[in-house]
Write a protein that binds this DNA or RNA. Structure first.
Lengths: 295, 295
DNA sequence: CGCGGGTGATAAACGCGGCTTATGATCGCA
DNA sequence: TGCGATCATAAGCCGCGTTTATCACCCGCG
Protein backbone atom coordinates (compact mmCIF):
# COMPACT_ATOMS: atom_id res chain seq x y z
CA UNK A 1 0.00 0.00 0.00
CA UNK A 2 1.40 3.35 -1.01
CA UNK A 3 0.36 6.92 -0.37
CA UNK A 4 -0.13 7.41 -4.06
CA UNK A 5 -2.79 4.73 -4.08
CA UNK A 6 -4.55 6.29 -1.12
CA UNK A 7 -4.56 9.67 -2.79
CA UNK A 8 -5.96 8.10 -5.93
CA UNK A 9 -8.59 6.35 -3.87
CA UNK A 10 -9.78 9.55 -2.26
CA UNK A 11 -9.90 11.32 -5.60
CA UNK A 12 -11.84 8.47 -7.20
CA UNK A 13 -14.35 8.60 -4.38
CA UNK A 14 -14.69 12.36 -4.70
CA UNK A 15 -15.27 12.30 -8.44
CA UNK A 16 -17.24 9.06 -8.55
CA UNK A 17 -15.68 8.40 -11.89
CA UNK A 18 -12.24 7.19 -12.95
CA UNK A 19 -11.99 9.46 -15.95
CA UNK A 20 -12.64 12.70 -14.15
CA UNK A 21 -10.49 11.66 -11.19
CA UNK A 22 -7.69 10.87 -13.61
CA UNK A 23 -7.99 14.29 -15.15
CA UNK A 24 -7.86 15.94 -11.74
CA UNK A 25 -4.78 13.93 -10.80
CA UNK A 26 -3.07 14.55 -14.14
CA UNK A 27 -2.70 10.86 -14.91
CA UNK A 28 -4.37 8.60 -17.44
CA UNK A 29 -7.54 6.68 -16.67
CA UNK A 30 -5.91 3.22 -16.87
CA UNK A 31 -3.46 4.28 -14.17
CA UNK A 32 -6.36 4.63 -11.76
CA UNK A 33 -7.97 1.43 -12.94
CA UNK A 34 -4.70 -0.32 -12.28
CA UNK A 35 -4.08 1.31 -8.91
CA UNK A 36 -7.58 0.65 -7.67
CA UNK A 37 -7.43 -2.96 -8.71
CA UNK A 38 -4.09 -3.33 -6.99
CA UNK A 39 -5.41 -1.88 -3.77
CA UNK A 40 -8.49 -4.06 -3.83
CA UNK A 41 -6.35 -7.13 -4.38
CA UNK A 42 -3.97 -6.19 -1.60
CA UNK A 43 -6.73 -5.39 0.88
CA UNK A 44 -8.84 -8.33 -0.20
CA UNK A 45 -12.05 -6.26 -0.37
CA UNK A 46 -13.98 -4.78 -3.25
CA UNK A 47 -13.93 -1.01 -2.68
CA UNK A 48 -16.01 0.30 -5.57
CA UNK A 49 -18.79 -1.16 -7.66
CA UNK A 50 -18.27 -0.36 -11.31
CA UNK A 51 -21.31 0.89 -13.14
CA UNK A 52 -21.75 2.27 -16.64
CA UNK A 53 -22.21 5.70 -15.05
CA UNK A 54 -19.05 5.60 -12.95
CA UNK A 55 -17.98 3.93 -9.73
CA UNK A 56 -19.73 3.87 -6.38
CA UNK A 57 -18.14 2.96 -3.06
CA UNK A 58 -19.14 -0.27 -1.33
CA UNK A 59 -19.69 -0.35 2.44
CA UNK A 60 -16.10 -1.35 2.86
CA UNK A 61 -15.06 1.28 0.35
CA UNK A 62 -16.67 4.06 2.31
CA UNK A 63 -14.84 3.13 5.49
CA UNK A 64 -11.55 2.59 3.72
CA UNK A 65 -11.82 5.91 1.92
CA UNK A 66 -12.45 7.66 5.20
CA UNK A 67 -9.41 6.03 6.79
CA UNK A 68 -7.36 6.72 3.68
CA UNK A 69 -8.17 10.39 3.58
CA UNK A 70 -7.13 10.67 7.19
CA UNK A 71 -3.86 8.93 6.43
CA UNK A 72 -3.27 11.25 3.50
CA UNK A 73 -3.96 14.24 5.71
CA UNK A 74 -1.40 13.00 8.22
CA UNK A 75 1.14 12.53 5.51
CA UNK A 76 0.56 16.07 4.32
CA UNK A 77 1.13 17.17 7.89
CA UNK A 78 4.59 15.66 7.73
CA UNK A 79 5.36 18.02 4.89
CA UNK A 80 3.82 20.90 6.84
CA UNK A 81 5.97 20.16 9.88
CA UNK A 82 9.06 20.06 7.72
CA UNK A 83 8.07 23.29 6.04
CA UNK A 84 7.79 24.94 9.41
CA UNK A 85 11.33 23.96 10.25
CA UNK A 86 12.56 25.02 6.85
CA UNK A 87 11.04 28.41 7.48
CA UNK A 88 12.66 28.45 10.89
CA UNK A 89 16.01 28.02 9.22
CA UNK A 90 15.10 30.77 6.79
CA UNK A 91 14.31 33.01 9.76
CA UNK A 92 10.66 33.58 9.01
CA UNK A 93 7.81 33.47 11.53
CA UNK A 94 4.19 33.50 10.42
CA UNK A 95 1.80 34.89 13.00
CA UNK A 96 -1.91 34.24 12.53
CA UNK A 97 -4.72 36.45 13.75
CA UNK A 98 -8.21 37.53 12.79
CA UNK A 99 -9.63 41.04 12.57
CA UNK A 100 -8.04 43.17 15.30
CA UNK A 101 -6.21 40.19 16.74
CA UNK A 102 -5.24 40.83 20.33
CA UNK A 103 -5.48 44.59 19.92
CA UNK A 104 -2.51 46.62 21.04
CA UNK A 105 -0.73 43.48 22.27
CA UNK A 106 -0.35 42.24 18.71
CA UNK A 107 1.81 45.16 17.68
CA UNK A 108 3.75 45.34 20.93
CA UNK A 109 4.58 41.64 20.77
CA UNK A 110 5.76 42.00 17.23
CA UNK A 111 7.93 44.98 18.08
CA UNK A 112 9.54 43.27 21.04
CA UNK A 113 10.08 40.09 19.04
CA UNK A 114 11.77 42.10 16.30
CA UNK A 115 14.06 43.64 18.92
CA UNK A 116 15.10 40.25 20.29
CA UNK A 117 15.38 38.51 16.92
CA UNK A 118 16.53 41.21 14.50
CA UNK A 119 17.29 38.80 11.67
CA UNK A 120 13.83 37.27 11.66
CA UNK A 121 11.11 38.37 9.28
CA UNK A 122 7.64 38.28 10.82
CA UNK A 123 4.77 37.60 8.45
CA UNK A 124 1.35 38.48 9.86
CA UNK A 125 -1.39 36.34 8.34
CA UNK A 126 -5.00 37.48 8.60
CA UNK A 127 -7.71 34.79 8.68
CA UNK A 128 -11.46 34.71 8.30
CA UNK A 129 -13.68 34.08 11.31
CA UNK A 130 -12.57 31.19 13.47
CA UNK A 131 -10.02 29.93 10.97
CA UNK A 132 -6.81 30.56 12.94
CA UNK A 133 -6.85 27.32 14.91
CA UNK A 134 -7.22 25.20 11.81
CA UNK A 135 -4.49 27.17 10.06
CA UNK A 136 -2.24 26.44 12.99
CA UNK A 137 -2.99 22.75 12.86
CA UNK A 138 -2.35 22.34 9.17
CA UNK A 139 0.81 24.40 9.21
CA UNK A 140 -0.25 27.59 7.46
CA UNK A 141 1.07 29.60 10.41
CA UNK A 142 3.57 28.93 13.19
CA UNK A 143 1.77 30.72 16.01
CA UNK A 144 -1.54 32.56 16.23
CA UNK A 145 -3.73 34.77 18.35
CA UNK A 146 -6.91 32.73 18.66
CA UNK A 147 -10.24 34.19 19.66
CA UNK A 148 -11.99 32.00 22.22
CA UNK A 149 -14.07 29.95 22.28
CA UNK A 150 -12.24 27.78 19.77
CA UNK A 151 -11.34 24.17 19.20
CA UNK A 152 -7.80 23.95 20.54
CA UNK A 153 -7.25 20.22 20.08
CA UNK A 154 -3.75 19.54 18.86
CA UNK A 155 -2.61 22.94 20.07
CA UNK A 156 -0.98 24.37 23.14
CA UNK A 157 -2.15 27.77 24.23
CA UNK A 158 -2.27 30.46 26.91
CA UNK A 159 -4.85 33.20 27.36
CA UNK A 160 -2.92 36.44 26.87
CA UNK A 161 -5.51 39.11 26.44
CA UNK A 162 -9.11 40.00 27.21
CA UNK A 163 -11.15 42.93 26.10
CA UNK A 164 -14.74 44.06 26.50
CA UNK A 165 -17.19 43.67 23.69
CA UNK A 166 -18.95 46.47 21.87
CA UNK A 167 -21.81 46.69 19.45
CA UNK A 168 -21.23 48.16 16.00
CA UNK A 169 -24.01 50.38 14.61
CA UNK A 170 -24.53 52.54 11.55
CA UNK A 171 -24.48 56.28 12.26
CA UNK A 172 -27.93 57.58 13.03
CA UNK A 173 -29.02 54.30 14.62
CA UNK A 174 -31.39 54.69 17.56
CA UNK A 175 -28.76 53.29 19.94
CA UNK A 176 -25.80 55.06 18.38
CA UNK A 177 -25.53 57.90 20.87
CA UNK A 178 -25.81 55.82 24.03
CA UNK A 179 -22.84 55.51 26.40
CA UNK A 180 -23.57 51.81 26.79
CA UNK A 181 -26.26 49.28 25.94
CA UNK A 182 -27.46 46.01 27.38
CA UNK A 183 -27.43 43.06 25.02
CA UNK A 184 -31.18 42.57 25.46
CA UNK A 185 -31.74 46.06 24.07
CA UNK A 186 -30.47 44.70 20.77
CA UNK A 187 -32.84 41.73 20.72
CA UNK A 188 -34.89 43.12 17.84
CA UNK A 189 -31.93 44.12 15.71
CA UNK A 190 -30.77 41.70 12.98
CA UNK A 191 -27.30 40.55 13.96
CA UNK A 192 -24.39 39.70 11.65
CA UNK A 193 -23.14 36.14 11.92
CA UNK A 194 -21.04 33.66 9.94
CA UNK A 195 -21.33 30.20 8.48
CA UNK A 196 -17.57 29.72 8.58
CA UNK A 197 -17.23 29.22 12.33
CA UNK A 198 -18.71 26.36 14.37
CA UNK A 199 -22.02 26.77 16.14
CA UNK A 200 -20.39 27.25 19.52
CA UNK A 201 -18.38 30.22 18.26
CA UNK A 202 -21.39 31.86 16.63
CA UNK A 203 -23.57 31.41 19.70
CA UNK A 204 -20.93 32.85 21.98
CA UNK A 205 -20.52 35.95 19.85
CA UNK A 206 -24.26 36.39 19.38
CA UNK A 207 -24.87 35.87 23.12
CA UNK A 208 -27.32 33.06 22.40
CA UNK A 209 -29.45 32.56 24.38
CA UNK A 210 -29.80 36.13 25.62
CA UNK A 211 -30.05 36.75 29.41
CA UNK A 212 -33.83 36.91 29.04
CA UNK A 213 -33.86 33.51 27.33
CA UNK A 214 -34.66 34.78 23.85
CA UNK A 215 -32.77 33.95 20.68
CA UNK A 216 -30.98 36.62 18.66
CA UNK A 217 -32.52 37.83 15.43
CA UNK A 218 -30.18 36.35 12.83
CA UNK A 219 -29.20 38.80 10.10
CA UNK A 220 -26.95 38.42 7.06
CA UNK A 221 -23.85 36.23 7.15
CA UNK A 222 -20.27 37.23 6.36
CA UNK A 223 -16.80 35.70 6.25
CA UNK A 224 -14.59 38.39 7.74
CA UNK A 225 -14.36 41.88 9.24
CA UNK A 226 -14.52 43.89 6.06
CA UNK A 227 -17.65 42.14 4.83
CA UNK A 228 -19.24 42.50 8.22
CA UNK A 229 -18.51 46.22 8.51
CA UNK A 230 -19.79 46.85 5.00
CA UNK A 231 -23.12 45.33 5.91
CA UNK A 232 -23.35 47.19 9.20
CA UNK A 233 -22.46 50.54 7.63
CA UNK A 234 -25.10 49.84 5.03
CA UNK A 235 -27.68 49.47 7.80
CA UNK A 236 -28.45 45.82 7.02
CA UNK A 237 -27.63 44.64 10.54
CA UNK A 238 -25.63 45.31 13.67
CA UNK A 239 -22.60 43.40 14.88
CA UNK A 240 -20.76 42.50 18.06
CA UNK A 241 -17.01 42.89 18.22
CA UNK A 242 -14.12 43.36 20.63
CA UNK A 243 -13.56 46.97 21.63
CA UNK A 244 -10.21 47.18 19.87
CA UNK A 245 -12.08 47.00 16.60
CA UNK A 246 -13.37 50.51 17.22
CA UNK A 247 -9.85 51.89 16.82
CA UNK A 248 -8.37 49.37 14.36
CA UNK A 249 -11.27 49.55 11.94
CA UNK A 250 -12.42 53.14 12.45
CA UNK A 251 -14.89 54.23 9.78
CA UNK A 252 -16.84 57.48 9.50
CA UNK A 253 -20.07 55.60 8.89
CA UNK A 254 -19.88 53.40 11.98
CA UNK A 255 -20.40 53.89 15.70
CA UNK A 256 -19.24 51.58 18.46
CA UNK A 257 -21.07 51.40 21.80
CA UNK A 258 -19.94 49.28 24.78
CA UNK A 259 -22.00 46.25 25.71
CA UNK A 260 -22.49 46.48 29.44
CA UNK A 261 -23.57 42.98 30.36
CA UNK A 262 -21.68 40.39 28.29
CA UNK A 263 -18.52 38.41 28.90
CA UNK A 264 -15.36 40.00 27.50
CA UNK A 265 -13.50 38.38 24.60
CA UNK A 266 -10.58 36.20 25.65
CA UNK A 267 -7.71 35.84 23.23
CA UNK A 268 -5.26 32.96 23.49
CA UNK A 269 -1.83 32.69 21.97
CA UNK A 270 -1.61 29.19 20.49
CA UNK A 271 0.98 27.04 18.76
CA UNK A 272 1.12 23.48 17.48
CA UNK A 273 1.42 20.87 20.16
CA UNK A 274 4.86 19.32 20.13
CA UNK A 275 5.71 20.66 16.72
CA UNK A 276 6.61 24.14 17.93
CA UNK A 277 9.71 25.52 16.29
CA UNK A 278 12.39 27.55 17.99
CA UNK A 279 11.08 30.83 16.59
CA UNK A 280 7.50 30.06 17.65
CA UNK A 281 8.78 29.38 21.15
CA UNK A 282 10.60 32.68 21.05
CA UNK A 283 7.42 34.51 20.15
CA UNK A 284 5.50 32.75 22.91
CA UNK A 285 8.19 33.87 25.34
CA UNK A 286 7.91 37.46 24.22
CA UNK A 287 4.16 37.51 24.67
CA UNK A 288 4.47 35.81 28.05
CA UNK A 289 6.90 38.48 29.20
CA UNK A 290 4.67 41.29 27.97
CA UNK A 291 1.56 39.92 29.63
CA UNK A 292 3.29 39.18 32.94
CA UNK A 293 4.56 42.72 33.31
CA UNK A 294 1.29 44.31 32.32
CA UNK A 295 -0.98 42.53 34.80
CA UNK B 1 6.94 11.54 -0.35
CA UNK B 2 5.96 7.90 -0.03
CA UNK B 3 4.86 5.73 2.86
CA UNK B 4 7.92 3.59 2.36
CA UNK B 5 10.14 6.58 3.08
CA UNK B 6 8.18 7.43 6.21
CA UNK B 7 8.44 3.87 7.46
CA UNK B 8 12.16 3.92 6.81
CA UNK B 9 12.43 7.22 8.62
CA UNK B 10 10.73 5.90 11.72
CA UNK B 11 12.90 2.79 11.72
CA UNK B 12 16.07 4.83 11.29
CA UNK B 13 15.07 6.99 14.22
CA UNK B 14 14.30 3.95 16.36
CA UNK B 15 17.59 2.23 15.65
CA UNK B 16 19.73 5.36 15.50
CA UNK B 17 21.79 3.64 12.88
CA UNK B 18 21.26 2.96 9.20
CA UNK B 19 22.79 -0.50 9.27
CA UNK B 20 20.65 -1.91 12.03
CA UNK B 21 17.52 -0.23 10.67
CA UNK B 22 18.26 -1.76 7.28
CA UNK B 23 18.55 -5.17 8.84
CA UNK B 24 15.22 -4.72 10.63
CA UNK B 25 13.55 -3.64 7.41
CA UNK B 26 15.14 -6.41 5.35
CA UNK B 27 16.75 -4.00 2.90
CA UNK B 28 20.34 -3.02 2.31
CA UNK B 29 21.95 -0.09 4.06
CA UNK B 30 22.40 2.02 0.90
CA UNK B 31 18.66 1.82 0.32
CA UNK B 32 18.11 3.73 3.55
CA UNK B 33 20.91 6.13 2.82
CA UNK B 34 19.28 6.84 -0.51
CA UNK B 35 15.75 7.12 0.86
CA UNK B 36 16.76 9.40 3.68
CA UNK B 37 18.66 11.68 1.38
CA UNK B 38 15.70 11.81 -0.97
CA UNK B 39 13.34 12.75 1.81
CA UNK B 40 15.68 15.43 3.11
CA UNK B 41 15.99 16.88 -0.35
CA UNK B 42 12.25 16.84 -0.92
CA UNK B 43 11.44 18.39 2.45
CA UNK B 44 14.32 20.82 2.30
CA UNK B 45 15.46 20.11 5.84
CA UNK B 46 18.26 18.04 7.28
CA UNK B 47 16.60 15.35 9.38
CA UNK B 48 19.55 13.45 10.83
CA UNK B 49 23.10 14.39 11.64
CA UNK B 50 25.48 11.68 10.50
CA UNK B 51 28.11 10.70 13.01
CA UNK B 52 30.66 7.90 12.99
CA UNK B 53 28.54 6.17 15.64
CA UNK B 54 25.28 6.34 13.76
CA UNK B 55 22.70 9.01 13.03
CA UNK B 56 20.97 11.38 15.42
CA UNK B 57 17.81 13.34 14.70
CA UNK B 58 17.99 17.11 14.33
CA UNK B 59 15.30 19.33 15.88
CA UNK B 60 13.42 19.20 12.63
CA UNK B 61 14.05 15.47 12.41
CA UNK B 62 12.44 14.81 15.75
CA UNK B 63 9.25 16.63 14.78
CA UNK B 64 9.13 15.09 11.33
CA UNK B 65 9.65 11.60 12.73
CA UNK B 66 6.80 12.13 15.15
CA UNK B 67 4.48 13.29 12.37
CA UNK B 68 5.69 10.48 10.14
CA UNK B 69 5.01 7.76 12.67
CA UNK B 70 1.50 9.11 13.10
CA UNK B 71 0.98 9.06 9.35
CA UNK B 72 2.28 5.50 9.18
CA UNK B 73 -0.06 4.49 11.97
CA UNK B 74 -2.99 5.96 10.06
CA UNK B 75 -1.98 4.13 6.95
CA UNK B 76 -1.85 0.88 8.90
CA UNK B 77 -5.34 1.68 10.11
CA UNK B 78 -6.52 1.70 6.53
CA UNK B 79 -5.40 -1.88 6.28
CA UNK B 80 -7.06 -2.68 9.60
CA UNK B 81 -10.35 -1.19 8.46
CA UNK B 82 -10.21 -3.21 5.27
CA UNK B 83 -9.38 -6.34 7.23
CA UNK B 84 -12.44 -5.80 9.36
CA UNK B 85 -14.62 -5.72 6.29
CA UNK B 86 -12.89 -8.73 4.82
CA UNK B 87 -13.65 -10.59 8.00
CA UNK B 88 -17.23 -9.36 7.82
CA UNK B 89 -17.53 -10.93 4.40
CA UNK B 90 -16.00 -14.11 5.80
CA UNK B 91 -18.64 -14.06 8.53
CA UNK B 92 -16.32 -13.78 11.50
CA UNK B 93 -16.79 -11.47 14.48
CA UNK B 94 -14.03 -10.97 17.02
CA UNK B 95 -15.25 -9.97 20.47
CA UNK B 96 -12.72 -8.57 22.92
CA UNK B 97 -12.92 -8.79 26.69
CA UNK B 98 -10.69 -9.07 29.71
CA UNK B 99 -10.88 -11.53 32.57
CA UNK B 100 -14.53 -12.27 33.32
CA UNK B 101 -15.71 -9.73 30.75
CA UNK B 102 -19.24 -8.64 31.45
CA UNK B 103 -19.98 -11.76 33.49
CA UNK B 104 -23.07 -13.70 32.54
CA UNK B 105 -23.99 -11.13 29.89
CA UNK B 106 -20.98 -12.12 27.81
CA UNK B 107 -22.22 -15.65 27.30
CA UNK B 108 -25.85 -14.68 26.87
CA UNK B 109 -24.99 -12.12 24.25
CA UNK B 110 -22.93 -14.62 22.37
CA UNK B 111 -25.68 -17.22 22.46
CA UNK B 112 -28.34 -14.82 21.25
CA UNK B 113 -26.01 -13.50 18.52
CA UNK B 114 -25.37 -17.06 17.35
CA UNK B 115 -29.12 -17.62 17.18
CA UNK B 116 -29.69 -14.54 15.03
CA UNK B 117 -26.62 -15.02 12.83
CA UNK B 118 -26.17 -18.78 12.55
CA UNK B 119 -23.57 -18.59 9.80
CA UNK B 120 -21.26 -16.31 11.74
CA UNK B 121 -18.29 -17.57 13.71
CA UNK B 122 -17.68 -15.60 16.89
CA UNK B 123 -14.08 -15.41 18.08
CA UNK B 124 -13.69 -14.32 21.70
CA UNK B 125 -10.36 -12.58 22.27
CA UNK B 126 -9.04 -12.23 25.81
CA UNK B 127 -6.83 -9.21 26.59
CA UNK B 128 -4.57 -8.19 29.40
CA UNK B 129 -5.56 -5.40 31.79
CA UNK B 130 -6.92 -2.32 30.08
CA UNK B 131 -5.87 -3.45 26.60
CA UNK B 132 -9.34 -3.90 25.02
CA UNK B 133 -9.85 -0.28 24.00
CA UNK B 134 -6.51 -0.11 22.21
CA UNK B 135 -7.19 -3.43 20.50
CA UNK B 136 -10.46 -2.02 19.26
CA UNK B 137 -8.78 1.08 17.91
CA UNK B 138 -6.06 -0.74 16.01
CA UNK B 139 -8.42 -3.32 14.58
CA UNK B 140 -7.50 -6.45 16.53
CA UNK B 141 -11.16 -6.90 17.47
CA UNK B 142 -14.44 -5.69 16.03
CA UNK B 143 -16.30 -5.08 19.27
CA UNK B 144 -15.32 -5.38 22.94
CA UNK B 145 -16.55 -5.33 26.50
CA UNK B 146 -14.48 -2.58 28.06
CA UNK B 147 -13.96 -2.17 31.77
CA UNK B 148 -14.36 1.43 32.83
CA UNK B 149 -12.69 3.74 33.43
CA UNK B 150 -10.97 3.56 30.06
CA UNK B 151 -9.83 5.82 27.28
CA UNK B 152 -12.69 5.63 24.78
CA UNK B 153 -11.44 8.19 22.26
CA UNK B 154 -12.12 7.02 18.73
CA UNK B 155 -14.74 4.59 19.99
CA UNK B 156 -18.48 4.55 20.40
CA UNK B 157 -19.80 2.79 23.46
CA UNK B 158 -22.70 2.11 25.81
CA UNK B 159 -22.57 0.97 29.41
CA UNK B 160 -24.22 -2.43 29.42
CA UNK B 161 -23.38 -4.00 32.74
CA UNK B 162 -22.38 -3.17 36.28
CA UNK B 163 -21.36 -5.45 39.09
CA UNK B 164 -20.15 -5.02 42.65
CA UNK B 165 -16.53 -5.44 43.50
CA UNK B 166 -15.06 -8.06 45.77
CA UNK B 167 -11.70 -8.63 47.38
CA UNK B 168 -9.77 -11.78 46.60
CA UNK B 169 -7.92 -13.41 49.50
CA UNK B 170 -5.92 -16.58 50.07
CA UNK B 171 -7.72 -19.19 52.19
CA UNK B 172 -6.94 -18.74 55.86
CA UNK B 173 -6.57 -14.96 55.50
CA UNK B 174 -7.74 -12.99 58.54
CA UNK B 175 -10.58 -11.44 56.48
CA UNK B 176 -11.45 -14.60 54.57
CA UNK B 177 -14.48 -15.60 56.57
CA UNK B 178 -16.16 -12.21 56.75
CA UNK B 179 -19.48 -11.64 54.97
CA UNK B 180 -18.22 -8.27 53.75
CA UNK B 181 -15.33 -5.88 54.33
CA UNK B 182 -14.76 -2.16 54.02
CA UNK B 183 -11.99 -1.07 51.73
CA UNK B 184 -10.20 0.71 54.57
CA UNK B 185 -9.92 -2.61 56.39
CA UNK B 186 -7.56 -3.68 53.61
CA UNK B 187 -5.33 -0.62 53.94
CA UNK B 188 -2.44 -2.61 55.38
CA UNK B 189 -2.62 -5.46 52.89
CA UNK B 190 -0.32 -5.30 49.84
CA UNK B 191 -2.56 -4.95 46.80
CA UNK B 192 -1.98 -6.39 43.31
CA UNK B 193 -1.71 -3.82 40.54
CA UNK B 194 -0.47 -3.55 36.97
CA UNK B 195 1.94 -1.50 34.94
CA UNK B 196 0.04 -2.23 31.74
CA UNK B 197 -2.92 0.04 32.40
CA UNK B 198 -2.84 3.82 32.72
CA UNK B 199 -2.62 5.50 36.11
CA UNK B 200 -6.30 6.37 36.16
CA UNK B 201 -7.33 2.75 35.70
CA UNK B 202 -4.98 1.52 38.43
CA UNK B 203 -6.12 4.17 40.90
CA UNK B 204 -9.76 3.42 40.27
CA UNK B 205 -9.28 -0.29 40.90
CA UNK B 206 -7.09 0.26 43.94
CA UNK B 207 -9.55 2.83 45.32
CA UNK B 208 -6.79 5.43 45.59
CA UNK B 209 -7.07 7.52 47.64
CA UNK B 210 -9.00 5.48 50.17
CA UNK B 211 -12.05 7.05 51.87
CA UNK B 212 -9.83 7.89 54.85
CA UNK B 213 -7.40 9.70 52.54
CA UNK B 214 -4.63 7.12 52.74
CA UNK B 215 -2.84 5.50 49.82
CA UNK B 216 -3.07 1.76 49.17
CA UNK B 217 -0.07 -0.42 50.00
CA UNK B 218 1.20 -1.33 46.54
CA UNK B 219 2.04 -5.00 46.17
CA UNK B 220 3.39 -7.01 43.21
CA UNK B 221 2.38 -6.19 39.65
CA UNK B 222 0.80 -8.50 37.07
CA UNK B 223 -0.44 -8.42 33.49
CA UNK B 224 -3.66 -10.46 33.61
CA UNK B 225 -6.05 -12.50 35.71
CA UNK B 226 -4.10 -15.71 35.87
CA UNK B 227 -0.94 -14.00 37.06
CA UNK B 228 -2.90 -12.02 39.58
CA UNK B 229 -4.69 -15.04 41.02
CA UNK B 230 -1.44 -16.98 41.25
CA UNK B 231 0.07 -14.27 43.39
CA UNK B 232 -2.98 -13.95 45.58
CA UNK B 233 -3.28 -17.69 46.11
CA UNK B 234 0.37 -17.71 47.03
CA UNK B 235 -0.33 -15.15 49.75
CA UNK B 236 1.83 -12.45 48.21
CA UNK B 237 -0.97 -9.90 48.09
CA UNK B 238 -4.72 -9.39 47.86
CA UNK B 239 -6.66 -8.17 44.84
CA UNK B 240 -9.84 -6.33 43.92
CA UNK B 241 -12.07 -7.73 41.18
CA UNK B 242 -15.63 -7.73 39.92
CA UNK B 243 -17.86 -10.25 41.68
CA UNK B 244 -18.28 -12.40 38.57
CA UNK B 245 -14.65 -13.37 38.91
CA UNK B 246 -15.59 -15.44 41.94
CA UNK B 247 -17.56 -17.82 39.75
CA UNK B 248 -15.59 -17.57 36.49
CA UNK B 249 -12.21 -18.09 38.11
CA UNK B 250 -13.17 -20.31 41.04
CA UNK B 251 -10.12 -21.82 42.70
CA UNK B 252 -9.93 -23.95 45.86
CA UNK B 253 -7.13 -21.79 47.25
CA UNK B 254 -8.99 -18.47 46.96
CA UNK B 255 -11.81 -16.76 48.83
CA UNK B 256 -13.86 -13.80 47.58
CA UNK B 257 -15.46 -11.35 50.00
CA UNK B 258 -17.73 -8.45 48.96
CA UNK B 259 -16.40 -4.92 49.31
CA UNK B 260 -19.16 -3.00 51.00
CA UNK B 261 -18.21 0.60 50.30
CA UNK B 262 -16.75 0.98 46.81
CA UNK B 263 -18.25 1.88 43.45
CA UNK B 264 -19.32 -1.09 41.35
CA UNK B 265 -17.50 -1.91 38.10
CA UNK B 266 -19.17 -0.52 35.00
CA UNK B 267 -18.65 -2.40 31.76
CA UNK B 268 -19.22 -0.75 28.39
CA UNK B 269 -19.73 -2.39 25.04
CA UNK B 270 -17.59 -0.46 22.59
CA UNK B 271 -16.89 -0.49 18.86
CA UNK B 272 -14.81 1.64 16.49
CA UNK B 273 -16.28 5.03 15.74
CA UNK B 274 -17.58 5.17 12.20
CA UNK B 275 -15.76 2.04 11.13
CA UNK B 276 -18.26 -0.35 12.62
CA UNK B 277 -19.04 -3.26 10.36
CA UNK B 278 -22.43 -4.83 9.83
CA UNK B 279 -21.67 -7.74 12.13
CA UNK B 280 -20.40 -5.48 14.89
CA UNK B 281 -23.60 -3.50 14.64
CA UNK B 282 -25.52 -6.74 14.90
CA UNK B 283 -23.72 -7.66 18.09
CA UNK B 284 -24.34 -4.23 19.56
CA UNK B 285 -28.02 -4.67 18.80
CA UNK B 286 -28.13 -8.02 20.53
CA UNK B 287 -26.55 -6.64 23.67
CA UNK B 288 -28.83 -3.63 23.59
CA UNK B 289 -31.87 -5.91 23.40
CA UNK B 290 -30.61 -8.06 26.24
CA UNK B 291 -29.88 -5.15 28.53
CA UNK B 292 -33.16 -3.40 27.80
CA UNK B 293 -35.21 -6.44 28.73
CA UNK B 294 -33.23 -7.14 31.86
CA UNK B 295 -33.54 -3.69 33.42
C1' DC C 1 -32.85 -1.28 -33.84
C1' DG C 2 -28.52 0.33 -34.35
C1' DC C 3 -25.44 3.80 -33.42
C1' DG C 4 -22.89 7.30 -30.59
C1' DG C 5 -21.02 8.59 -26.43
C1' DG C 6 -20.22 7.50 -22.02
C1' DT C 7 -18.28 4.18 -18.78
C1' DG C 8 -14.23 0.93 -16.95
C1' DA C 9 -10.89 -3.01 -18.35
C1' DT C 10 -7.13 -4.84 -20.85
C1' DA C 11 -2.81 -5.09 -23.56
C1' DA C 12 1.76 -3.89 -24.80
C1' DA C 13 5.66 -1.21 -24.47
C1' DC C 14 8.49 2.09 -22.19
C1' DG C 15 11.34 4.11 -18.78
C1' DC C 16 11.83 5.88 -14.24
C1' DG C 17 13.28 4.96 -9.78
C1' DG C 18 14.55 2.23 -5.98
C1' DC C 19 16.87 -1.91 -5.15
C1' DT C 20 21.22 -4.66 -4.84
C1' DT C 21 26.27 -5.49 -4.53
C1' DA C 22 30.70 -3.55 -4.39
C1' DT C 23 33.53 -0.05 -2.98
C1' DG C 24 34.97 4.35 -1.03
C1' DA C 25 35.55 7.94 2.64
C1' DT C 26 35.72 9.07 7.50
C1' DC C 27 36.08 8.65 12.13
C1' DG C 28 37.25 6.63 16.78
C1' DC C 29 39.89 3.76 19.22
C1' DA C 30 43.16 0.31 20.71
C1' DT D 1 48.74 2.92 12.56
C1' DG D 2 45.56 -0.25 11.40
C1' DC D 3 41.08 -2.26 12.48
C1' DG D 4 36.25 -1.99 12.70
C1' DA D 5 32.62 0.64 13.00
C1' DT D 6 29.94 4.22 10.58
C1' DC D 7 27.46 6.46 6.21
C1' DA D 8 28.07 7.75 1.09
C1' DT D 9 28.70 6.70 -3.64
C1' DA D 10 28.72 4.05 -8.01
C1' DA D 11 26.95 0.96 -11.40
C1' DG D 12 23.80 -2.15 -13.03
C1' DC D 13 19.47 -4.47 -12.88
C1' DC D 14 14.63 -4.99 -13.06
C1' DG D 15 10.01 -4.38 -11.13
C1' DC D 16 6.26 -1.62 -11.51
C1' DG D 17 3.49 2.20 -12.63
C1' DT D 18 2.97 4.79 -16.37
C1' DT D 19 1.46 5.72 -21.18
C1' DT D 20 -1.25 5.03 -25.63
C1' DA D 21 -4.32 2.22 -28.06
C1' DT D 22 -8.01 -0.65 -27.99
C1' DC D 23 -11.79 -3.45 -26.31
C1' DA D 24 -16.19 -4.50 -24.00
C1' DC D 25 -20.16 -2.94 -22.03
C1' DC D 26 -24.33 -0.17 -21.09
C1' DC D 27 -27.64 3.34 -22.01
C1' DG D 28 -30.27 6.68 -24.40
C1' DC D 29 -31.97 8.34 -28.55
C1' DG D 30 -33.13 9.04 -33.30
Amino acid sequence: MELRQLRYLVAIDEHGNLGRAAKALFVSQPALSYALKGLETELGVRLFERTPGGVVATDAGRDVVRAASEAVRRADLVAAVAARHRRDAARVLRVGFEASGAGELTRRARAEFARRHPAVRVEPKRFDWGEEAEALRDGRVDVAFVWLPADLTGLRSAVVHTEPRVVGLPIGHRLAYRAGVSVVETNDEPLMWTKRAPRRWVDWWAVNPRPDGSEPLWGPTNDNVEEMLEQVAEGAAICFAPSSMASYYARPDLVWVPLTDVEPLRVALAWPDGAGTALARGFVEVVADLTVTET
